[in-house]
Design a protein around this nucleic acid. Structure first.
Lengths: 238, 238
DNA sequence: ACCTGAACACCGTTCAAGT
DNA sequence: ACCTGAACACCGTTCAAGT
């Protein structure tokens, strides 16, 4: 693999032009490696051995490129077949697959969670989930709201799990925060004090490591369990 | 109110110096008015009638300022008293209060949802929720995981609800997307086709307006109902 | 303590020009 | 069709200097 053949190292053969898919893939790799803030039209261009403005031809504006990248992440969720599988099993499995896909690209979670999906790539996903919920016994307005409850829970929860501190802030405040928690007044914070060893760095608002480094597997499974218990209860109630 | 007295309009009296709280409040107002992307150290500075570098003295780096602003939003959630109130009622009420607080500052939702809370202002919140869940009957590892399930659901779900399209992308693709949905193949997308009138622009992944403009009240209430049904079921199961 | 003012090393994006 | 190359109007941040 001589220098002359490849496209890496900022070098490019004069022939074989870029493609839209190539740019999107390169951007995803770049974000995975260097973080979302580091993604720059100029940086990505040099990485690809091309002038910054060449990217505009293929993927448009930076915002459009980022939207395309986030759509790409959803694309490689392959849903399991749902015939011969209980609806609740299937939903559980799909929820875990979504979480896995997001965990594969934790630096993109802020976009996944806060940006409206602009692509039709998610339509097959919606179809399958709606179909399975229909099969479970939901219909009409209930169906829509249950769908939103489920999808919003999964994507939203994992977004929060993967949230992290901006590179700038995280100097030494983690230790500081941990110390502050341990010296909290037991009279004004009795519940926290009782459960501190279990809570600290394991619970939302009382942790300092991202779910990217400290996955909250147990809590996700519990949340999923609660959701499915709720779905069953709602079905038997009506 | 003459021009000489105020601090608005890019003018400032030479006396009465800035304060940290003043900068944070101004930044929050600015984000509410002009969006998160528009928040710029330079823009905020001119808004406050001051040089950009003056802000650094009070709130540090831009990332630190944004973190402080997001902490401020959580701060003005005032939790109701929980004595003489069933635990499930209280949780429902608190969930709604959180959602309301986020809806008051929709432009900040991306930060709330994707950035680890770096301040101790959320500690009292955690104390109260943990305490109420203890009272409900949870303890030990279960308590922590149920806490995470609940908090992650509320904050995460609303983050997703408030997600929106970046200013750049939203040219005319909404109509285009709506049209594409309506011409979808009924054979490959039967469930979607059956429920299209209820789903379109109302369901995650199949909508083009943000929850900021089109609040998903019903779906949030359903999600909350499912969560509480789940909690009750889990309690009676053990 | 609090702010000015200049300066540095970046950005995204437009547009004409090349091939 | 696809890319170069220059140019424009911005950024965040550091740092010395003022008061």
């Amino acid at each position: 693999m001589g220098e002359s053949s490849g496209r890496r190292g900022g070098r490019r053969a004069a022939r074989n032009p870029l493609s839209r898919a190539e740019v999107i893939d390169a951007a995803l790799r770049y974000v995975d490696l260097h973080g979302l803030d580091a993604l720059t039209m100029r940086a990505l261009a040099t990485e690809m051995g091309v002038y910054p403005t060449a990217l505009y031809w293929h993927t448009g504006t930076k915002a459009q490129l980022v939207a395309a990248v986030s759509a790409r992440v959803l694309e490689d969720i392959v849903l399991p077949a749902d015939h011969g599988m209980a609806w609740d099993e299937w939903l559980t499995e799909v929820a875990r697959l979504c979480r896995q896909a997001m965990h594969r690209h934790p630096n993109l979670a802020p976009i996944l969670g806060s940006q409206l999906v602009v692509s039709t790539t998610a339509v097959p996903f919606a179809e399958r989930v709606v179909g399975v919920l229909e099969r479970a016994g939901f219909s009409g307005r209930d169906l829509v709201e249950v769908y939103n409850a489920v999808v919003g829970f999964v994507l939203g929860w994992v977004t929060l799990e993967l949230s992290s501190v901006p590179a700038d802030v995280e100097e030494g405040w983690q230790k500081e925060y941990a110390a502050q928690l341990r010296t909290v007044n037991p009279n004004t914070f009795p519940a926290l004090t009782r459960n501190l060893s279990l809570l600290e760095n394991n619970a939302f608002l009382v942790r300092w490591d991202s779910g990217r480094d400290r996955p909250m597997d147990g809590s996700f499974e519990t949340a999923l369990e609660l959701l499915l218990l709720g779905l069953h209860a709602k079905l038997t109630a009506q």
